[in-house]
Amino acid sequence: MATAAKVSPASAGRSAVVLRAQRSLWQDAWHTFSRDRLAVTGLVVLAVITLGALVGPYVWSDQGKEIDFGLSLSGPSLAHPFGNDDLGRDLLARAMLGARVSLAVGVSAVVLAITLGTTIGAVAGYFGRLDNPLMRLTDLFLSLPVLPLLLVLVYLFKDTLQRTIGLELGTFIMIVSVIGFLNWMPTARLVRASFLTLKQREFVEAARSVGAPHGRIIFRHILPNSLSPVLVAATIGIGGAIITESTLSFLGLGFPPDQPTLGRILYEAVNYLDFAPHWAIVPGLAIFLIVLAINFIGDGLRDALDPRRKI
């Protein structure tokens, strides 16, 4: 990412008076980010939850699979700090497994959406001829009723995919691709906008004048400079994708019952709200904390990466 720093006008202007050791754009961003208390709190919370989801199931002796009707619907205790569900399974273990799936879905869906959005946005912004049709396509996707369409797609393709690839992997691939395919539009718009401005800048003109091919101009010169808004959008998009996945699971159209995701646990808990409110609160709070942490991080990143805010 050193190129990003070299060509950035912000760092070029600053180098006139060097009073301290020079920092790259990313070090600079990290400096701003680390002073944002909310963003750092979000990062810590997200790190703890991610660690719990990744390592937790290996450390915590209970795997959330043991059925014990003696413990059915019992509240938090020392042995089971988050309580138990109707089959007496440990909710802490199930929440950790659920968070693992939710985070995996969120990150994968966003990777897909960002890849698609960046490609479409870059092509539209760089090649003027394709700009209009691609942007009409983006507008079309933006006016789709996302959740109803998601529900219909999941309902239609769930069985086939599960039969061909397997129950858990099939559901995972389907949900990730459906969420990804319906969420690339904001990225495409951002990337297109920054491609349109950067395309006119001197350093791109210089690259073109020395005979750099299109691919090199796009990947080496323009793309690195348009990545920061994409990074912010991606961060916040993970939160959105996690909410979407949980919503699908909550409506009963997500993952199968034996694979706990946070939304699925909440869906199962809804019928027992009067006996065991803790059952619903544990996964709900987990989703909320993850999304809130992600949003704080995204906002912190926006402040840190926006060159207009730095003087």
């Binding site: 909440l266 709900g284 989703i287 909320f288 809130l292 704080f296």
Partner: peptide, 22 residues
């Protein structure tokens, strides 16, 4: 406002039911 749009709607609903109905 942050908290408001980070809580998924289904969880707000469940919370309201727990607090006000149950």
């Amino acid at each position: 406002a942050y908290i408001g749009f980070s809580v998924p709607t289904f969880f707000t609903g469940v919370l309201l039911i727990i607090i006000f109905s149950i």
